[in-house]
Amino acid sequence: MNNIFVVFKKQIKDTFTNKSVLLQVILYPVMTLIMENLIRTEGIPDHFYTKMFSAMYVGMTPLISMASIIAEEKEKNTLRVLMMSNVKPWQYLTGIGLYVWMIFMIGAGMMSITLNPANIPFYLLVMGLGAIVSIAAGACVGINGKNQMSATSQGTVIMLLLSFLPMLGMFNDGFAKAARFVYTQHVRELLDEMSFSALKLDGAIIVAVNALLAVTLFIIAYRKKGLE
C-alpha cells in the first residue's frame, strides 16, 4: 500500500516539469473550452466539440501518458532502482495508473463544465471507465517499448485508431463501420445520448472485448517482458 502511494506522490511532483504528460492533459480540455465558448458556429449540435474531443481525449491521453511514463522510467533506469528497492511491479503500475487516472479526470472535469449540470455525473462515469481501458492499453505499450521513442511511436498508432476513428466516422461511412470495433466509438455514442440506454448489446460486448483484450495483452506483455 505504502509503495503505491510513494510512486503516486513521486509522479505528482513530476507533473509540472513533465511537459509531454502535462501537454497531453491540458490540450483537449483547453481546446474544448475554446471551441465551445468562443467558436460557436450556427447549425452545430449542442456540445458537439465537447463530445468529439472527449472521445479523442479518453482514447489518447491516458494511453500516451501511461506509456511514456513507464517507457521513460525504463529508459532512464529509474524503474530498476525502484524494483531493487522492493517496490513490486504491480505496486508501481497501480501507482502510475492511479496518477494518470486522476489527472485525466481533472481534465475531464474541466471539459464537463460545458455540459448540462444534470449530465455531469454520467459523463464523468463514462470517461472514468473508458480511461481505465486506455490505461491498461498504455501499460502494454510502455512495457513493450524499448525506450520512450519506440513507446511513443507504437502508442501513436493505437491512439490514432482509438481517437480518430470515431471522429472520422462522423464524416465517412467506411470509417464509421471500422469505428464500431473500438470502445472509444461507444464512449462517444454514450456521450451523445447521455444515458446508458444508448449502449446496445453489441456495443456493450465490443467495449467488454476491448477491455478484456487490453488487460490480456497487458498480462502477456508483462509475463514476457516484465518491467526490465
Binding site: 513521486k10 511532483k13 516539469t17 532512464k76 531493487m84
Partner: peptide
C-alpha cells in the same frame, strides 16, 4: 545502470 529522476530535485 541505476538512474535518477532528472526533473526532480536532489531532495525529492
Amino acid at each position: 545502470q541505476f538512474g535518477v529522476y532528472e526533473r526532480l530535485s536532489c531532495y525529492d
